[in-house]
Write a protein that binds this DNA or RNA. Sequence first.
DNA 1: CGATTTTGACCTGCGC
DNA 2: GCGCAGGTCAAAATCG
Length: 222
Amino acid sequence: MVAALGSHPFDMASYNPPHGQGSGSGSAESGSASGNYSIPLGDAQPDQPPPFDLSDYILMEPGVGPTNFIPPPILMQGPLMQGGMSAPQMESAVFQAAQNSAGVNIPTSTAAMERPRTERIAFRMQSEIEIVDDGYKWRKYGKKSVKDSPNPRNYYRCSTEGCSVKKRVERDKDDPSYVITTYEGVHNHVSPTVVYDARQDAASGRYYVAGMAHMPPSSLGN
DNA sequence: CGATTTTGACCTGCGC
DNA sequence: GCGCAGGTCAAAATCG
Protein backbone atom coordinates (compact mmCIF):
# COMPACT_ATOMS: atom_id res chain seq x y z
CA MET A 1 0.00 0.00 0.00
CA VAL A 2 1.50 3.17 -1.07
CA ALA A 3 0.48 6.68 -1.70
CA ALA A 4 2.57 8.25 -4.34
CA LEU A 5 2.73 11.95 -4.67
CA GLY A 6 3.57 12.24 -8.27
CA SER A 7 2.87 14.74 -10.95
CA HIS A 8 -0.39 15.50 -9.26
CA PRO A 9 -0.27 15.33 -5.50
CA PHE A 10 -1.81 12.35 -3.77
CA ASP A 11 -2.04 10.31 -6.89
CA MET A 12 -1.34 6.78 -5.92
CA ALA A 13 1.12 4.58 -7.68
CA SER A 14 1.51 0.90 -7.32
CA TYR A 15 4.44 -0.19 -5.33
CA ASN A 16 5.77 -3.60 -4.52
CA PRO A 17 6.55 -3.61 -0.87
CA PRO A 18 10.11 -4.56 -0.08
CA HIS A 19 9.19 -7.18 2.40
CA GLY A 20 11.82 -8.84 4.46
CA GLN A 21 12.86 -12.23 3.29
CA GLY A 22 11.56 -14.12 6.25
CA SER A 23 14.32 -13.22 8.60
CA GLY A 24 12.15 -14.32 11.43
CA SER A 25 11.12 -10.88 12.40
CA GLY A 26 7.54 -11.82 11.82
CA SER A 27 6.72 -8.76 9.82
CA ALA A 28 6.41 -10.33 6.41
CA GLU A 29 3.02 -11.87 6.85
CA SER A 30 1.01 -9.06 5.41
CA GLY A 31 -0.10 -9.52 1.89
CA SER A 32 1.58 -11.36 -0.87
CA ALA A 33 5.23 -10.76 -1.43
CA SER A 34 4.82 -9.50 -4.90
CA GLY A 35 1.52 -7.82 -5.50
CA ASN A 36 -0.03 -4.60 -4.44
CA TYR A 37 -1.94 -4.57 -1.26
CA SER A 38 -5.61 -4.95 -1.70
CA ILE A 39 -6.95 -4.94 1.80
CA PRO A 40 -9.70 -2.35 1.77
CA LEU A 41 -9.27 0.69 3.86
CA GLY A 42 -10.54 0.10 7.34
CA ASP A 43 -11.25 -3.54 6.75
CA ALA A 44 -9.08 -4.98 9.43
CA GLN A 45 -8.41 -8.67 9.23
CA PRO A 46 -9.90 -10.20 12.36
CA ASP A 47 -7.36 -12.97 12.54
CA GLN A 48 -4.30 -10.85 12.06
CA PRO A 49 -2.65 -8.10 14.00
CA PRO A 50 -2.62 -4.74 12.32
CA PRO A 51 -0.39 -5.50 9.36
CA PHE A 52 1.64 -2.37 9.48
CA ASP A 53 5.20 -2.45 8.41
CA LEU A 54 7.47 -0.43 6.26
CA SER A 55 5.56 -1.37 3.20
CA ASP A 56 2.80 0.88 4.37
CA TYR A 57 4.37 4.04 3.29
CA ILE A 58 3.38 7.04 1.44
CA LEU A 59 5.59 7.55 -1.52
CA MET A 60 6.66 11.07 -2.24
CA GLU A 61 8.19 12.07 -5.48
CA PRO A 62 10.69 14.88 -6.05
CA GLY A 63 9.31 18.33 -5.98
CA VAL A 64 6.57 17.52 -3.55
CA GLY A 65 8.31 19.26 -0.78
CA PRO A 66 10.47 16.78 1.08
CA THR A 67 12.32 19.63 2.69
CA ASN A 68 9.22 21.35 3.89
CA PHE A 69 6.91 18.48 4.49
CA ILE A 70 4.52 18.35 7.38
CA PRO A 71 3.32 14.83 8.12
CA PRO A 72 -0.27 14.44 9.10
CA PRO A 73 -0.61 14.77 12.84
CA ILE A 74 -2.69 11.68 12.94
CA LEU A 75 -0.97 8.38 12.66
CA MET A 76 -2.33 5.09 11.64
CA GLN A 77 -1.74 1.43 11.30
CA GLY A 78 -2.46 -0.93 8.54
CA PRO A 79 -2.84 -0.59 4.81
CA LEU A 80 -4.17 2.74 3.94
CA MET A 81 -4.53 3.80 0.41
CA GLN A 82 -4.82 2.41 -3.02
CA GLY A 83 -4.59 3.94 -6.41
CA GLY A 84 -6.44 6.89 -7.75
CA MET A 85 -7.14 9.05 -4.74
CA SER A 86 -7.49 12.76 -4.89
CA ALA A 87 -6.03 14.92 -2.18
CA PRO A 88 -9.31 15.25 -0.27
CA GLN A 89 -9.85 11.54 -0.58
CA MET A 90 -6.44 10.80 0.80
CA GLU A 91 -6.92 13.20 3.65
CA SER A 92 -10.19 11.58 4.44
CA ALA A 93 -8.67 8.14 4.13
CA VAL A 94 -5.85 9.03 6.46
CA PHE A 95 -8.27 10.22 9.05
CA GLN A 96 -10.53 7.24 8.63
CA ALA A 97 -7.61 4.87 8.92
CA ALA A 98 -6.59 6.56 12.13
CA GLN A 99 -10.05 6.11 13.48
CA ASN A 100 -10.11 2.52 12.43
CA SER A 101 -6.76 1.84 13.98
CA ALA A 102 -8.04 3.31 17.18
CA GLY A 103 -10.97 1.04 17.54
CA VAL A 104 -11.56 -1.56 14.89
CA ASN A 105 -8.57 -3.81 14.69
CA ILE A 106 -8.99 -6.87 16.82
CA PRO A 107 -5.76 -8.83 16.86
CA THR A 108 -6.17 -12.29 18.24
CA SER A 109 -2.64 -13.53 18.64
CA THR A 110 -1.52 -13.15 22.21
CA ALA A 111 1.56 -11.25 21.21
CA ALA A 112 -0.43 -8.78 19.20
CA MET A 113 -3.07 -8.48 21.87
CA GLU A 114 -0.68 -7.85 24.70
CA ARG A 115 1.57 -5.54 22.80
CA PRO A 116 0.50 -1.98 23.35
CA ARG A 117 -0.70 -0.54 20.10
CA THR A 118 1.41 2.28 18.83
CA GLU A 119 0.18 4.44 16.05
CA ARG A 120 2.63 4.64 13.21
CA ILE A 121 2.91 5.91 9.73
CA ALA A 122 5.74 5.61 7.30
CA PHE A 123 6.62 7.80 4.40
CA ARG A 124 8.80 6.88 1.49
CA MET A 125 10.12 9.84 -0.38
CA GLN A 126 12.78 10.46 -2.92
CA SER A 127 15.25 12.79 -1.34
CA GLU A 128 18.93 13.53 -1.28
CA ILE A 129 18.76 14.33 2.37
CA GLU A 130 17.51 12.09 5.12
CA ILE A 131 16.38 14.74 7.52
CA VAL A 132 13.32 16.52 6.29
CA ASP A 133 11.97 19.56 8.02
CA ASP A 134 8.59 18.43 9.24
CA GLY A 135 8.18 21.32 11.62
CA TYR A 136 9.11 19.40 14.72
CA LYS A 137 12.39 19.31 16.53
CA TRP A 138 14.03 15.91 16.72
CA ARG A 139 16.89 14.55 18.73
CA LYS A 140 18.81 11.57 17.51
CA TYR A 141 19.19 8.82 20.07
CA GLY A 142 20.40 5.84 18.17
CA LYS A 143 21.73 4.40 14.98
CA LYS A 144 21.58 0.79 13.97
CA SER A 145 22.51 -1.23 10.97
CA VAL A 146 19.68 -3.47 9.96
CA LYS A 147 19.67 -6.89 8.44
CA ASP A 148 19.05 -7.09 4.70
CA SER A 149 19.98 -3.49 4.24
CA PRO A 150 23.37 -1.85 3.71
CA ASN A 151 22.02 1.39 5.07
CA PRO A 152 21.89 2.17 8.76
CA ARG A 153 18.65 3.13 10.44
CA ASN A 154 18.60 6.28 12.51
CA TYR A 155 16.37 6.76 15.52
CA TYR A 156 15.00 10.13 16.53
CA ARG A 157 12.83 11.30 19.39
CA CYS A 158 10.83 14.50 19.57
CA SER A 159 12.89 16.86 21.66
CA THR A 160 9.88 18.66 23.04
CA GLU A 161 9.58 17.93 26.71
CA GLY A 162 6.82 15.50 27.46
CA CYS A 163 6.40 14.39 23.88
CA SER A 164 7.35 10.77 23.24
CA VAL A 165 6.94 10.65 19.50
CA LYS A 166 9.71 8.80 17.73
CA LYS A 167 10.73 8.41 14.16
CA ARG A 168 13.04 6.11 12.27
CA VAL A 169 14.82 7.17 9.15
CA GLU A 170 16.52 4.85 6.73
CA ARG A 171 17.31 4.68 3.08
CA ASP A 172 15.45 2.23 0.93
CA LYS A 173 17.65 -0.78 0.48
CA ASP A 174 16.29 -1.31 -3.02
CA ASP A 175 16.65 2.27 -4.12
CA PRO A 176 18.96 4.41 -1.98
CA SER A 177 17.60 7.54 -3.58
CA TYR A 178 14.50 7.00 -1.46
CA VAL A 179 14.26 7.72 2.22
CA ILE A 180 11.83 5.87 4.45
CA THR A 181 10.68 7.80 7.48
CA THR A 182 8.53 6.07 10.07
CA TYR A 183 6.72 8.13 12.66
CA GLU A 184 5.58 6.41 15.83
CA GLY A 185 3.19 8.03 18.24
CA VAL A 186 1.28 11.25 18.21
CA HIS A 187 2.62 14.64 19.17
CA ASN A 188 0.92 16.08 22.21
CA HIS A 189 1.75 19.55 21.04
CA VAL A 190 1.58 21.51 17.87
CA SER A 191 4.54 22.08 15.67
CA PRO A 192 6.89 24.57 17.29
CA THR A 193 7.72 26.09 13.95
CA VAL A 194 4.72 25.68 11.72
CA VAL A 195 1.37 26.62 13.14
CA TYR A 196 -0.97 28.21 10.70
CA ASP A 197 -4.11 27.57 12.65
CA ALA A 198 -4.75 25.45 15.68
CA ARG A 199 -8.04 25.06 17.42
CA GLN A 200 -9.84 22.42 19.36
CA ASP A 201 -13.21 21.23 18.26
CA ALA A 202 -15.59 21.39 21.18
CA ALA A 203 -17.63 18.41 20.07
CA SER A 204 -14.91 15.92 19.22
CA GLY A 205 -12.12 17.24 21.34
CA ARG A 206 -9.78 17.00 18.40
CA TYR A 207 -7.31 19.63 17.54
CA TYR A 208 -7.32 20.99 14.06
CA VAL A 209 -3.98 22.20 12.88
CA ALA A 210 -3.74 23.71 9.44
CA GLY A 211 -6.91 21.93 8.55
CA MET A 212 -5.99 18.48 9.80
CA ALA A 213 -7.43 16.64 12.74
CA HIS A 214 -5.22 16.23 15.74
CA MET A 215 -6.02 13.92 18.60
CA PRO A 216 -6.20 15.67 21.95
CA PRO A 217 -3.34 14.94 24.30
CA SER A 218 -5.72 13.43 26.80
CA SER A 219 -6.56 10.67 24.34
CA LEU A 220 -3.00 9.54 23.96
CA GLY A 221 -2.32 6.05 25.13
CA ASN A 222 1.36 6.52 25.64
C1' DC B 1 28.10 25.82 28.20
C1' DG B 2 23.98 23.67 26.88
C1' DA B 3 22.19 20.97 23.18
C1' DT B 4 22.93 17.49 20.00
C1' DT B 5 25.32 13.60 17.87
C1' DT B 6 28.00 9.47 18.01
C1' DT B 7 28.59 4.84 19.17
C1' DG B 8 29.29 0.70 21.84
C1' DA B 9 26.80 -1.73 25.29
C1' DC B 10 22.73 -3.38 26.98
C1' DC B 11 17.88 -4.96 26.86
C1' DT B 12 14.01 -7.40 24.93
C1' DG B 13 11.27 -10.12 21.83
C1' DC B 14 11.05 -13.88 18.82
C1' DG B 15 12.24 -18.01 16.17
C1' DC B 16 14.55 -22.29 16.26
C1' DG C 1 17.74 -22.14 26.37
C1' DC C 2 20.32 -19.94 22.81
C1' DG C 3 21.26 -16.79 19.29
C1' DC C 4 19.87 -13.15 16.37
C1' DA C 5 17.95 -8.75 15.30
C1' DG C 6 15.81 -4.53 16.48
C1' DG C 7 15.43 -0.88 19.74
C1' DT C 8 17.18 1.98 23.57
C1' DC C 9 20.51 3.81 26.86
C1' DA C 10 24.17 6.58 28.27
C1' DA C 11 28.82 8.40 28.36
C1' DA C 12 31.92 10.81 25.53
C1' DA C 13 32.62 13.83 21.76
C1' DT C 14 31.22 17.55 18.99
C1' DC C 15 28.83 21.67 17.71
C1' DG C 16 26.90 26.33 17.83
